[in-house]
Amino acid sequence: MAFIRVGPEDFDLGTEMAALRAAAGDIGAVASFIGIVRGGAAAPMTAMTLEHYPGMTERAIASMAAEAETRFALSACRVIHRTGRIPLGGQIVLVMTACGHRQAALDATAYLIDWLKVAAPFWKKEHLADGTDIWVEARNADDSAAARWQTP
């Protein structure tokens, strides 16, 4: 059973890994991904706000985590996705998986972050240095990244 948290609180990688290992038992590999608010190429950005659909978001993540646990024979899995305003350099999302061997842990982590980007209802708004706010447009590249997992 995956651990899932959606909310404004930040997370600490060491604390989360200790919790993951406590839940996992005897494992040989842990892999993780952390998404971070970056500056923005086109216009300088100072922060980002993450909006979500309470209820549906948690359900969608639970569903993809359960799928990953089965498909990659995970011993444990943690997904934390923050909401609200996050400053430049702040952590947005953590995916962490544990299992017997490295390849399944690495693949399960990539699988989860690829699906999170297209199937969990979150919306990003960028706060630019000039005071304007813009909603981020969805990227076709994200759909392609998720689609590669449909033909293993």
Binding site: G35, L50, H81, V93, K117, P121, F122, W123, A138
Partner: peptide
């Protein structure tokens, strides 16, 4: 029933 733009999380 929820209406929203294409999602952009992660």
């Amino acid at each position: 029933i929820a209406l929203f733009p294409p999602i952009t999380g992660g």
